[in-house]
Computed example of a mutant assay.
Amino acid sequence: MSLINQKRTFSHGLTGLSRFLEESFLDVTKPKRKFKFFRGLIFANYDYVVRFPKVKICDFLSMYPSARGLEILMNLHQDERWSLSDLETLYLLALISMKKAPKIFEIGSAHGETSYAMARINQDTHIFSLDLPVDDTVAHQNKMRWKNTPQEQHITQLYGDSTTFDYSPYLGQMDLVLIDGDHSYLTCKSDSVNALKLINDKGIIIWDDYQSLEVRRAVNELLPQENLFQLKGTNFAVLDRSLT
Rank of each mutant, 00 (worst) to 15 (best):
M1I: 03
S2T: 13
I4M: 09
K7C: 05
K7I: 11
F10G: 09
S11M: 12
G13R: 09
T15C: 04
L17I: 06
R19N: 15
E23A: 09
E23H: 11
S24G: 08
F25R: 07
F25Q: 14
D27M: 05
V28M: 09
P31H: 06
K32G: 06
K34D: 00
K36Q: 14
K36D: 13
F37I: 03
G40P: 07
A44D: 12
N45G: 08
Y48W: 06
V50N: 10
I57T: 13
I57Y: 05
I57Q: 10
D59E: 13
F60C: 03
L61C: 11
S62I: 00
S62V: 12
Y64C: 02
A67Y: 12
L70A: 13
M74V: 13
N75P: 02
H77Y: 07
E80W: 08
R81N: 15
W82R: 15
W82H: 14
S83W: 05
L84D: 01
L84K: 10
S85Q: 02
D86I: 08
L87M: 09
L87N: 01
L90N: 01
L90Q: 12
L92W: 03
L93K: 11
L93T: 06
L95Y: 01
I96Q: 01
I96D: 02
K99R: 11
K100R: 14
P102K: 08
K103L: 11
I104N: 01
F105P: 04
I107S: 03
I107D: 04
A110S: 15
A110N: 15
H111G: 15
G112R: 00
E113M: 15
A117K: 11
D124Y: 00
H126N: 09
H126K: 04
F128E: 02
L130C: 08
L132T: 02
P133L: 00
P133V: 06
D135Q: 10
T137D: 07
V138C: 07
A139R: 04
Q141H: 03
K143M: 13
K143H: 15
R145A: 10
R145C: 04
N148L: 12
N148Y: 07
T149M: 11
P150C: 05
P150T: 07
Q151A: 12
E152T: 00
H154P: 00
T156Q: 14
Y159A: 08
Y159K: 11
F165M: 00
Y170K: 04
L171A: 10
G172M: 04
M174D: 04
D175M: 03
L176A: 05
L178G: 03
L178S: 02
I179T: 00
I179A: 01
D180M: 13
Y185M: 06
C188D: 10
S192R: 07
N194H: 09
N194D: 12
A195H: 14
I199V: 07
D201E: 14
K202N: 13
K202E: 10
G203L: 10
G203K: 06
I204V: 15
I204M: 13
W207I: 08
W207F: 09
D208E: 13
D209R: 04
D209V: 02
Y210R: 05
S212H: 15
E214V: 00
E214G: 01
E214R: 01
R216L: 04
R217K: 15
A218V: 05
A218G: 03
A218N: 00
A218E: 00
Q225W: 00
L231A: 09
G233A: 03
G233T: 07
A237W: 04
V238L: 10
L239K: 13
R241E: 05
T244S: 07
